[in-house]
Simulated scan of single mutants.
Amino acid sequence: MSVLTDEIGRFVRAAGPEPDETLREMDAYAEEQGFPHVGPEVGGFLRLLARMTDAERIFEFGSGYGYSAYWFAGALPVDGEIVLTEVDEDELEMARGYMAEGGYDDIARYELGDAMETVGRYDGPFDVVLIDHQKHRYRDALEVVKPKIPVGGAIVADNAIRAGIIQFEKLLEIAEGGEPEDVNEHTRGVADYLEAVRADSDFETVVLPLGEGIAVSYRIG
Results as ranks from 00 to 15, higher is better:
Arg13Thr: 06
Gly39Phe: 05
Tyr138Arg: 10
Glu93Tyr: 03
Arg198Cys: 11
Val144Arg: 13
Tyr29Thr: 03
Val129Leu: 07
Ile161Glu: 00
Val206Ala: 14
Glu81Cys: 15
Asp79Gly: 09
Pro180Lys: 13
Glu101Ser: 15
Val129Ile: 13
Arg24Trp: 03
Tyr110Pro: 01
Val12Thr: 08
Glu7Val: 11
Ile155Gln: 06
Leu23Asp: 00
Ile214Asp: 01
Asp127Asn: 08
Pro19Phe: 02
Leu23Phe: 04
Gly113Cys: 12
Val207Glu: 12
Gly153Cys: 08
Val190Leu: 14
Asn184Val: 09
Phe168Lys: 04
Ala115Lys: 03
Pro125Trp: 14
Lys146Ala: 15
Ala115Phe: 07
Val3Asp: 04
Glu86Ile: 12
Ile174Thr: 06
Phe126Asn: 07
Arg96Pro: 04
Ile220Cys: 14
Asp114Met: 06
Gly74Asp: 03
Met1Ser: 09
Ala108Gln: 00
Ile214Arg: 01
Ile166Gly: 03
Phe45Met: 14
Ala191Gly: 12
Glu86Tyr: 15
Glu143Ala: 14
Pro150Ser: 11
Asp158Ile: 05
Ile82Val: 15
Ala28Ile: 00
Asp123Thr: 15
Ala14Glu: 15
Asp6Ile: 13
Lys146Gly: 06
Gly80Asn: 13
Phe45Val: 05
His186Trp: 15
Arg51Trp: 07
Gly43Phe: 04
Asp192Trp: 03
Leu142Met: 10
Phe203Thr: 04
Tyr138Lys: 12
Phe59Gly: 01
Arg51Leu: 08
Leu49Tyr: 05
Arg198Trp: 07
Gly34Ala: 02
Ile174His: 02
Phe59Asn: 07
Leu172Cys: 00
